[in-house]
């Protein structure tokens, strides 16, 4: 798999808020009964983080769990570990009704880093991003401009954004233009 490349091959738009495609990341869509203890333990075992509440994401480094819907979890692992993770899921949930698919290549992961990263996202998404309402740990699926996207905060100044691979260039362009236009200073 040495010939695998991410959608934008690590493209960077530097600035006071920097937009950076984060390269390859392992992502698994798991659809299952999230209340099931076996499902929970597979998720936490693979990612090493606590099982998230609805509307939340728990991420540490390359690993994490993002709550996508009442029956869908997005499991983040290093890109090279996806196949092994899928095998583990298939083995552990063998007797359950579930679906686990590798979606690492179907998505792009873009970082928005800098002092007014919050403003950059607020220019594009119809989401309340006030620090009292949205902070590290919160996870939101919505749209940026005209495409579906999900985002969460790595820290107070960094958003991680995922979008579909085919629109990575458009999404990066939106974020880049919004970052270059400068802060709004609303929050």
């Amino acid at each position: 798999m040495s010939n695998a490349v991410s959608a934008l091959n690590g493209k960077v738009a530097p600035g006071e808020v920097t937009i950076r495609e984060d390269g390859l990341r392992g992502m698994i869509t798991l659809r299952a009964d999230l209340a099931d203890s076996k499902v929970k333990s597979v998720c936490t075992g693979l990612s090493g983080v606590d099982f998230p509440m609805p509307g939340h994401a728990n991420c540490v480094g390359d690993k994490g769990l993002c709550w996508m819907s009442p029956d869908e979890m997005l499991i983040l692992v290093p890109y090279a570990e996806v196949e092994a993770a899928l095998e583990l899921i298939n083995k552990n949930l063998k007797k359950k009704h579930f679906l686990a698919e590798n979606v690492s290549d179907a998505r792009a992961l873009i970082l928005v880093e800098g002092s007014y990263a919050r403003d950059v996202i607020a220019k594009l998404a119809p989401v309340d991003l006030h620090p009292d309402v949205f902070g590290p740990g919160d996870f939101r699926r919505s749209h940026l401009g005209q495409v579906a996207a999900a985002f969460w905060m790595r820290d107070a100044d960094t958003f991680e954004v995922i979008c579909f691979r085919s629109v990575a260039e458009y999404t990066f362009g939106l974020l880049e233009a919004s970052a270059q236009a400068g802060p709004v200073g609303h929050f």
């Binding site: 609805p54 509307g55 819907s69 009442p70 119809p126 939101r140 699926r141 919505s142 749209h143």
Partner: peptide, 11 residues
């Protein structure tokens, strides 16, 4: 009622 979000019509 599923994810608890007050969703904008554009969503």
């Amino acid at each position: 009622p599923y994810c608890g979000v007050d969703a904008d019509e554009t969503d």
